[in-house]
Amino acid sequence: MRNRKRDVSDAPTASPARRRDWRAYFARTWFIYLIFLIVLIWYGIFRYAPMYGVQIAFRRYTPSAGIWNSRWVGLKNFERFFTSAYFTRVFRNTIVMNLLNLIFAFPAPIVFALMLNEIRHSAVKRSIQTISYLPHFISMVVLTGIMHDFLNDTGTITTLLNRVFGLPRKVWLNDVNAYRTIYILSDIWKDLGWSAIIYLAALSNVDTDLYDAAEIDGCGSIRKIIYVTLPGIAPTIIILLILRIGSMLSLGVEKTLLLYNPNTWEVSDIISSFVYRRGFGIDGRADYSFSTAVDLFNAVVNLCLLTLANIVARRFSETSLW
């Protein structure tokens, strides 16, 4: 995110600015400031005004009183959340689902990219890659629609599991024990190829001389991967890992809302889906303030995780976000 500072002499018209000739400076930049004004207004309304609105988490929001005039209740909404039975459920589910994603779905594209990289036949490699992007482009509604159908009691996956492993025919998405596996596997299915792109790009930048040197030293394919390839793409992995951890608690609300049902809430309900249900009163009275408090807790934990991940990355490697 850092901007390289160029010498002022780079742009010939910039030097008047140094001579405090503001008129020349604004002749050059008025257009930029006009754009900044528009950008500022948009971000102000649609990004910063909601941040200002976060204060309803500390109030008892009523639409008639509005954000500013609703009664101040301090931390009461947070207290209600932390003491409710939902807190452990949604917090645990959010953490577990994200950890599972981190353990299984995060490395999967790396492994896939490494494997693709071993294929020397470039037409085959390209075809596999093109096919692997395909699921990324279908919408979440279609993905979950297909899942509901395939995991139905007469669905494709159910039938396969029944014929091959003799598992019972049932609606798998109602099964508390299967939900998490289904969720993670479908994550992998959708984005395996797409997420691999960035690693493949990094792989193509690894110095080929290193492979030759390793081969002379008698390394086989596997040792070459361990000693040359992996260190070569480590910075990419670390950056993506930080970003992934930073967005940990905010992922998957759309998918969860489309996939879960009350039968599986015990394992499927995450913070953001809970925020949605409570906020819009899907299961009871809409409670803006309570919902916002839960969401704010989520956002703060998120920001802490991101900062923490960044600090750790900076400590142990040369790569970090800032």
Binding site: M1, L40, R47, P50, M51, G53, V54, I56, S272, V275
Partner: peptide, 22 residues
């Protein structure tokens, strides 16, 4: 300005305040 913009990638007002504004 850029810092203000990038900050919104890591922190947001959340679902309900967004909804209230819109």
């Amino acid at each position: 300005m850029m810092k203000l913009v990038v900050f919104t990638m890591f922190f947001s007002g959340g679902m309900i305040p967004n909804y209230i504004i819109v």
